[in-house]
């Protein structure tokens, strides 16, 4: 975690642009009688890492899927780079990417082949070169010719992250990127994310149940409960605001109060 920034790092803040990379306004999603997300609004600026926290069922994945267009919101608006998502899906998704512990890549292809397919899908001018760049960046060159079926879960997570970087995204959406990883692998992934923000000014929205990770990684957190944002701010600041020693203590208290 040596490269992890502390919130308020002036070198990072100076790179933030005024226009938000993501703007979400009054987002709501209902499934029949269940309101999964209720009037959520937030921004993520360029070069900012924002954590989306909350207990299971709080609406984190629903929000991520809505941002990616795989889930249609009941109401509200999603904009990327000032463009409405609904009318600009293709051009926006060309500049955005996503990775999750819960998705995979075709097993019968090598790492290089898989990444090559996605480089082409995202319209890379030189797919082979782009793949090599990403492999080098994530220190995955040794795995390039290996079938994805032969990767460990940690290696697969890093390859999925490589897939998420294949279009050099301006916005990265990550659903529990370090879940099921050992501490060393998780640390490598966190360093990659911090490096991305530092080098590419990438906006990152990340969900995680690892509160120490969120404290170390994020400039700001959005704390969700029952589909609403109930707290927002820099991780240590909001823990202190509510009289808790750290984010994990706050998380446990709020989650248990929410469950009655």
């Amino acid at each position: 975690m040596g490269e992890s920034k502390t919130p308020g790092d002036s070198g990072v803040i100076s790179t933030l642009s005024a226009s938000p990379a993501i703007e979400v306004r009054d987002l709501a999603k209902s499934y029949r009688n269940i309101e999964a997300v209720r009037g959520v609004s937030f921004d993520v600026r360029r070069g900012e890492i924002v954590g989306l926290l909350g207990p299971n069922g709080a609406g984190k994945t629903t929000i991520l899927q809505t941002l990616l267009g795989t889930l249609t919101p009941t109401s509200g608006q999603v904009r990327f780079f000032g463009l409405d998502f609904a009318g600009n899906r293709e051009s926006i998704l060309a500049r955005v990417n996503f990775s999750s512990t819960y998705v995979s890549l075709p097993y019968s292809l090598t790492v290089r082949e898989n990444l090559g397919i996605f480089a082409r899908l995202y319209g890379a001018a030189e797919p082979g070169k782009r793949v090599q760049d990403v492999l080098d960046r994530l220190d995955l060159a040794d795995l390039a010719e290996r079938y994805t079926s032969h990767l460990s879960s940690g290696q697969m997570t890093r390859v999925c992250l490589a897939k998420a970087l294949i279009n050099d995204p301006e916005v990265l959406l990550l659903d529990e990127p370090t879940a099921s990883l050992d501490p060393d692998m998780a640390d490598r992934v966190r360093k990659t994310l911090v490096g991305l923000r530092r080098d590419r000014n990438t906006a990152i929205l990340v969900t995680s149940h690892n509160m120490r990770e969120i404290e170390a990684l994020c400039d700001r957190v959005l704390f969700l409960q029952a589909g609403r944002i109930v707290m927002e701010g820099p991780p240590r600041e909001i823990a202190a605001r509510f009289g808790d020693a750290d984010l994990e203590t706050l998380f446990l208290r709020v989650a248990r109060e929410g469950r009655g």
Binding site: T70, E90, L93, F98, V103, P106, Y107, Y122
Partner: peptide, 17 residues
């Protein structure tokens, strides 16, 4: 094949229509 390899979401969060 895309369903079996849990790749469907990767495809539909790309610009692929």
């Amino acid at each position: 094949e895309e369903v079996w390899s849990r790749n469907l979401l990767n495809l539909f969060v790309s610009p692929l229509t």
